[in-house]
Simulated assay, not measured.
Amino acid sequence: MSDKHELRSAARARRKGLAEGDPMAASRAAGHADALPQGEVVALYRAMGSELDTDALSVALEAAGRRLCLPVVLERDAPMIFRAWSPGEPLEMDAAGCPAPLPLAEVLDPDLIITPLLAFDASGGRLGQGGGYYDRTFAARPEVIRIGFSYAGQAVEVMSLEAHDMGLHGVLTEAGYRAF
């Protein structure tokens, strides 16, 4: 477990450096939104800390006619649900302390989930923050297309995955979209 802890620490530091060194990366990544797999309902996330910001991506996806939603943690050990959202709509903190749509928003089932990450590898391995929210959600919805949204510099050589880790179908970075 300490190996993953050390890996997460190093990946957080690397991501922070990438964010500070390239403030326009999220806009360039959003410019490749048309390369994403098809999906009528797309789940995004609201960036926290040095996560790649989804503002420009949300505008691009909505302009392309895709319906947007955001994850909501209702219980810490359960899969997340997704509520409809459009850029500019109000948000409140969910049970995990993340910005989420208000309870009145419609609950949706996304076709495609855009997920933040700390690191990824060439076979679709993903290192998350460690809370397990996305892994639980992916396990409950194995048919959903899973796409990482990150800086290209977050790629690592090889990641050792555990049984509960579900791989990504692709990753969108400032360098473009890459399918796995």
Rank of each mutant, 00 (worst) to 15 (best):
R83Y: 12
L118I: 00
V73T: 13
P23E: 12
L7E: 07
T54C: 15
D165N: 08
E174K: 03
F120K: 00
V41Y: 06
A43L: 02
A140Q: 05
R76H: 10
G132A: 10
P110H: 08
T115L: 05
R67K: 14
R178I: 01
E143F: 04
L68V: 11
A139I: 05
Q129C: 03
A26T: 09
E162H: 12
V42I: 14
A26D: 14
D121K: 04
A47C: 11
R67L: 08
H169F: 13
R46H: 12
G131Q: 02
V59A: 15
V144C: 13
M24R: 08
L18Y: 06
G17Q: 14
P101K: 12
R178M: 06
G170C: 11
R83C: 14
Y134C: 01
P79V: 05
P142Y: 01
A105F: 08
P71W: 01
H164N: 12
V144Y: 03
G124P: 13
A60C: 07
E106S: 06
R136S: 08
R83Q: 12
D34Q: 14
E92W: 05
F138T: 00
A30R: 08
S27A: 15
R66E: 11
E89H: 05
E20R: 13
A100L: 13
G39A: 05
A43C: 04
A119V: 05
L118S: 02
S160H: 15
W85C: 06
M159P: 06
D94F: 10
A19G: 02
H164T: 11
P71M: 05
E157M: 14
I147C: 03
